[in-house]
Nucleic acid binder design. Structure first.
Lengths: 102, 102
DNA sequence: TTTATATATGATAATATTTTCATATAATCA
DNA sequence: TGATTATATGAAAATATTATCATATATAAA
């Protein structure tokens, strides 16, 4: 059985979802802008945005027919912490056969 | 292309690997003990331990014919931080269809 | 020095996740 | 209202990850 922490890592272990979080770290963007900047296919983007919304990592507001997404600032703080920390292990992570050779 | 942060989340997004980290959080254990306590199949455990070692999240020392694993204390600190933080989102994570219904 | 215990390795099978595809909805504009 | 733009939904196909299996190695004890 997966607990909340497992699910947390699952949410961020997806490349598209993580890239969305990174894009939203410093500015809010609508779905179309995210699509253009990240080159994620439209329906995938929509699925991933819904996941991030469900988990409350991001939030959304309507603006005309656009939906503008922004990061939850507590999520941003934690991600910043992780990024800072991971830099220490960067070289090791990149040479781990099990994580890379696939 | 995956960067170090992507790989970091991949490493922890695996249930077995995360359970190993949790077990090692407060005590050191040899492979056999981890196997018995977590009921992970032997070869899987070995693969996952190697991954965690490659990434320097854990370390190992020999003791006779056993190998005793322990957590890197910086990894422990970060994981503790994440766990503390994730509690806030627990209810949301557990009800995210995309992360759960599969 | 043979045997038993503890752990590791690599290839394939099983399973889970992600992408694609067809289509739907919602808001605005002509 | 009908067309257009922006985004969402759900199922099946494609792909990636994890588990299993057969086997190897390393250390210690008999």
């Amino acid at each position: 059985m997966k607990d909340a922490t497992d699910l947390f890592f699952d949410a961020f272990a997806n490349k598209n979802r993580f890239d969305i979080i990174m894009k939203l770290r410093n500015k809010e963007l609508c779905a179309g802008e995210l699509q253009r900047e990240l080159k994620i296919e439209q329906t995938n983007l929509s699925h991933d945005l819904r996941c991030l919304l469900n988990c409350r990592f991001i939030k959304v507001r309507k603006n005309g027919r656009k939906r503008v997404y922004s990061i939850n600032h507590e999520t941003k703080d934690l991600v910043d912490e992780v990024i800072k920390h991971v830099k220490i292990y960067e070289a090791y992570l990149k040479t781990c056969g099990i994580l890379n050779e696939r």
